[in-house]
């Protein structure tokens, strides 16, 4: 009885003693704290560089900050957002962005899949073809933009050489506002379809041969085999390729800037990124540009968000 009492007492005592000394020691010895120098520093750096930047951008977008000087945080409102949404330039840039996003991503995926299936059939020199298709992806936008600028030239460009040889009138690819966006999308597809091809090819090559054989034994045609058996298994590859392509479409700024060497891209190809940079660095309208940047971020999150949720549901996150 006495011992029992005693032990209880001891237990109570340890509980009290754990109070701060041992608790602190336990805490300091925990994995969380001991590993902190390793993940903590990068975390802090990341937070400042990325999330701090986003936060600052967000804050500026509510002010009227313009020109040189300092932003005034005393009167915060949504005026810049309202101004952007009611401006024709913003609306048409957003439309162009959307068209670019959808057309570019869709065509890239379809073309990439087609090329991947061809290469997966073990055609002769397939490795070399693979390199040929992937090469544009490895080139910088600055290089490809200059290349396409030459090819789009009305008088001496190779595209018009083809068009006129076929007996049509020369086309003003970049000068005609109703064609220009199509021309830009075409150039971007040329550059990125190789990437989707590689992603799909990796997916295709991980599918065992048995499935093709089984399908053949069951008498399925090649089209049917691909449509019903193979392509559905490429869902993962499609989703990840699509996300990368869409994010590229949102920031096609580099290509457009390299194409003309200025912040104003050819008529009819203005996208949110070019509009934002132009308003900020040509006119110093920091608050207005920050508002556009925030909306661009929301659009990018709109693309990435569902993907992350999908990954989370799949258990990959």
């Amino acid at each position: 009885m006495a011992t029992h009492d005693n032990t209880e007492h001891v237990a109570d005592a340890t509980d009290e003693a754990v109070g701060w000394e041992s608790k602190l020691r336990y805490f300091l010895n925990s994995d969380f704290v001991r590993s902190a120098p390793y993940w903590g520093i990068p975390f802090v750096l990341m937070s400042i560089a990325v999330y701090g930047g986003i936060g600052y951008n967000f804050a500026i977008s509510f002010t009227d900050y313009e020109g040189l000087g300092t932003p005034d945080y005393s009167a915060l409102d949504l005026e810049m957002y309202a101004q952007a949404l009611s401006s024709d330039a913003f609306v048409s840039a957003a439309q162009n962005n959307l068209v670019l996003l959808v057309a570019f991503t869709t065509v890239c995926l379809i073309l990439g899949l087609f090329l991947a299936i061809l290469l997966d059939h073990g055609i002769r020199f397939s490795e070399k073809f693979q390199t040929v298709y992937l090469l544009p992806m490895s080139l910088s936008f600055v290089v490809t933009a200059q290349l396409w600028l030459w090819m789009f030239n009305v008088e001496s460009g190779i595209l018009n050489l083809v068009v006129t040889t076929l007996g049509f009138n020369p086309v003003d690819w970049l000068g005609n506002p109703s064609i220009a966006l199509g021309a830009v999308i075409f150039a971007l597809i040329w550059q990125f379809s190789g990437y989707t091809m590689v992603v799909y090819l990796a997916g295709l090559q991980s599918i065992p041969n048995d499935q093709f054989e089984a399908a053949r034994v069951d008498g399925a045609s090649i089209t049917r085999t691909y449509l019903r058996i193979i392509v559905p298994q490429l869902k993962e590859a499609s989703v990840s390729a699509a996300v990368v392509l869409m994010v590229f479409a949102l920031k096609a700024f580099t290509f457009l800037y390299a194409l003309v060497g200025r912040y104003r891209p050819p008529n009819g190809t203005d996208i949110l990124a070019t509009l934002m940079v132009r308003r900020a660095f040509k006119f110093g309208e920091w608050a207005y540009s920050a508002a556009i940047a925030t909306m661009l971020l929301v659009m990018a999150l709109g693309v990435i968000g569902p993907y992350l949720y999908y990954q989370y549901k799949q258990g990959s996150l």
């Binding site: 600028l149 789009f152 030239n153 009305v154 008088e155 001496s156 460009g157 020369p170 003003d172 690819w173 970049l174 000068g175 005609n176 060497g261 050819p266």
Partner: peptide
């Protein structure tokens, strides 16, 4: 010139 739109 026809290529005016793409030249500097």
């Amino acid at each position: 010139t026809a290529d005016a739109s793409s030249i500097s």
